[in-house]
Design a protein around this nucleic acid. Structure first.
Length: 649
RNA sequence: GCCGGCGUAGCUCACUUGGUUAGAGCGACGGUCUCAUAAUCCGUAGGUAGCAGGUUCGAGUCCUGCCGCCGGCACCA
């Protein structure tokens, strides 16, 4: 029976970091686990999401065509995955002609079934960026460049998402396994119950995208492109539907709502399961470029190996929840679990077999207590892994390790070795066989999580069949052949000390610089010292002084401020900017600035912004604040005292 | 603001439907063994189960209120 699973396809504007590596590690683990369960073939798809205006611009700035640009970026992912030892089968790029064909095919099917219509899309458009701005109301300032947006209407193709409210709710109801974990499923139900709006699925202002098979220039918009790659990758292989889409919680809605709706519209089978995992936090903070706390996997792999990182992430973090990464915690777990635990068990067991039995596995049925412990360990771990509860599964395996360690100490084989009586020698055989057999089972079990280290132990045990071919049927007690000659012993997880952290941190600095150069190739072509983000933030083009003076910035003083009822972020203020009446301004700053703190405060106001109603209150202007990605706004202010009404220019 | 979740030892978490002195791993401390990677093993310390009430013979477990944290939506950016 086949098993087809996918990672998200990764957007090529940023290099792989710990979060993307995490998704991919987990997918790789599940692939190997499913193989052990006996599924065949087990196919894993990953890839790159390459179309967008932003990519088009970045390529332009780098003075290369978009395909050349994204090829370079995709190559970075491919080389990272190689370094991390990811065993994927397909790397699908959305720029692949095969994918273009699939997208158009799916579009035609949806259209034939009556779920596509041409309509007009009205949205906020930023003239200076020449781009539609999503999730912004017309008249709001553009989030990228800050210029006011305009309301523009454009002919677009729409997907009738609204028609799928009921079918989706039925799907969630009938297939409780479709969205996992359960609380995510509940969120999706709540979201769909609120009603669904049709989706605009094409754009006319983008060149770098998949042309829609319609009159005029229309290119498919992100989700009616990226999602379909899961299908494109295996279109000819009879693998659809996917058994699992593994994703991060941030893109759940697209996978759990849009994607099944597209497929239903096209009358195609639905994926079996969408599993949303959590985020990796860096020392309890969300990783983001603007905070500069992004951790990359490469340096960690260079110092402690990919297996150690994989083990850490999957053991430390309950799969599905957010979790925290720190170099410190990594090293601690490495030493405690891998070096002192599994590594040491392998080392002591194999050394004793060399020492007392000339490197030959003794002939003994082993201890029945240990055999029973092994059986229960497999049973519990199997349940945990089947539910993708990897941390629980690993915990179970490690408690088995401690059972063996305890068993060895109780039987004291080093004493038995000195006792030549038959009884003692038979007992010694039993101890050594039990430990070795436990080790064989443990290495097979840990193979999906730590492929290289597990193979290492497997080979040291003298096993000849490739560990990749092991299935759970091979895990029964007693399958370790007596008389087998074991290999030479070498530490699988040498202990590391705090200097490893320094090494990783130093390498991280280098890796950051390397990636910045790679992904910042645009900067050389644009202008001397601007990064791609900065140039994008500046709108990608220069404006004249005339453009600037159109924006009337004035100093104002807050004369009253109160929270807007029913909104977390809104502050309703009256601001004196030297006019007869104070202006009414509603601003989304309440989370960082309580009303009391605003009273009397001098602020910078965009005075000639078109009025806009927010929660029923007409706002006449906007307060200038630094807006950090994912962070709270910080108000602009002055170091010297400035009279109310003064113009900024 | 609406909906949902969580709050148990220094850290990470467990405790099946309410039932004896609330457990585990890591970390700390003390001891032990010598096969082993200053590893293993044994032991010790450490918890008013967020706070306050209530139901009950009995509550970490059920109910209410409050405090704190998180997620989704709204809203904002």
């Amino acid at each position: 029976m086949k098993y087809y699973l996918t990672t998200p396809i990764y957007y090529v504007n940023a290099a792989p970091h710990l979060g993307t590596a995490y998704s991919t590690f987990a997918a790789d683990l599940i692939k190997r686990f499913k193989k052990m369960e006996g599924y065949d073939p087990v196919v894993l798809t990953t890839g790159s999401d390459e179309h967008s205006l932003k990519v088009e611009r970045a390529a332009q700035a780098a003075d290369v065509n978009p395909l050349a640009y994204t090829t370079k970026m995709a190559a970075e992912f491919i080389s990272q995955w190689a370094k991390l030892g990811i065993d994927y089968d397909h790397f699908i790029r959305t720029s692949d002609p095969k994918h273009h064909e699939t997208v158009r095919w799916l579009f035609e099917r949806c259209k034939k079934n009556g779920y596509i219509y041409k309509g007009s899309y009205t949205g906020a458009y930023c003239v200076s960026d020449e781009a539609y701005v999503n999730d912004v109301n017309p008249g709001d300032p553009c989030p990228t460049c800050g210029n006011p947006t305009e309301t523009v209407t454009e002919e677009n193709y729409f997907f009738k998402l609204s028609a799928f409210q009921k079918p989706l709710l039925e799907l969630y109801e009938k297939s409780p396994e479709f969205v996992k974990p359960d609380h995510r499923r509940n969120e999706m139900i709540a979201f769909v119950q609120q009603g669904l709006n049709d989706l605009s699925i094409t754009r006319t202002n983008i060149q770098w995208g998949i042309p829609a098979p319609v009159e005029g220039h229309h290119v498919f918009y992100v989700w009616f492109d990226a999602l379909i790659s899961y299908m494109s990758a295996v279109k000819d292989d009879d693998l659809w539907p996917a058994d699992l889409h593994l994703i991060g919680k941030d893109i759940l809605r697209f996978h759990a709502v849009y994607w099944p709706a597209f497929l239903m519209a096209a009358d195609l089978p639905l994926p079996k399961k969408i599993f949303a995992h959590g985020w990796i936090l860096h020392e309890d903070n969300k990783m983001s470029k603007s905070r500069g706390n992004v951790v990359r996997p490469g340096p960690i792999v260079d110092v402690v190996g990919a297996d150690a990182l994989r083990y850490f992430l999957l053991r430390e973090i309950t799969f599905g929840q957010d979790g925290s990464f720190s170099y410190d915690a990594l090293i601690q777990r490495y030493n405690a679990d891998l070096a002192n635990g599994l590594g040491n068990l392998a080392s002591r067991t194999l050394t004793m077999i060399h020492q007392y039995r000339n490197g030959v596995i003794p002939d003994s049925p082993g201890s029945s207590d240990i055999a029973e412990a092994a059986r229960r360990t497999t049973e519990i771990t199997m349940d945990a892994f089947c539910e993708f509860n990897f941390s629980r599964g690993l915990e179970t395996l490690w408690s088995f390790i401690s059972v063996i360690d305890k068993f060895i100490v109780e039987r004291a084989p080093w004493k038995l070795g000195k006792d030549t009586s038959d009884f003692a020698q038979k007992m010694l055989d039993e101890v050594l066989y039990s430990a070795a057999e436990a080790l064989r089972i443990l290495s097979a079990w840990t193979h999906p999580v730590m492929p290289n280290s597990a193979r290492n132990i497997w080979i040291q045990l003298g096993m000849t069949a490739p560990i990749e071919s092991v299935t759970f049927a091979d895990l029964h007690w007693g399958k370790l052949p007596a008389g087998q000659k074991i290999g030479s012993v070498a530490a699988v997880f040498p202990r590391v000390d705090a200097s490893a952290i320094v090494k990783m941190e130093n390498l991280e600095v280098q890796e950051k610089a390397r990636q910045a150069e790679l992904f910042g190739a645009a900067k050389a072509a644009v202008s001397s010292a601007v990064t791609p983000e900065a140039s994008a933030a500046a709108g990608g083009e220069k404006i004249s002084i005339d453009d600037f003076v159109k924006v009337e910035l004035r100093v104002g003083q807050v004369v009253s401020a109160e929270r807007v009822k029913g909104a977390d972020k809104l502050l309703h203020m009256k601001v004196d900017i030297g006019e007869e009446q104070p202006r009414t301004i509603v601003a989304g700053i309440a989370e960082s600035y309580p009303a009391e703190a605003m009273l009397g405060r001098k602020v910078v106001i965009v005075a000639n912004l078109a009025p806009r109603k927010l929660r029923g209150i007409e706002s006449n202007g906007m307060i200038v604040a630094a807006s950090l990605e994912g962070g709270k706004p910080v108000l602009a202010g002055f170091l010297e005292d400035v009279p109310v009404g003064a113009r900024l220019k």
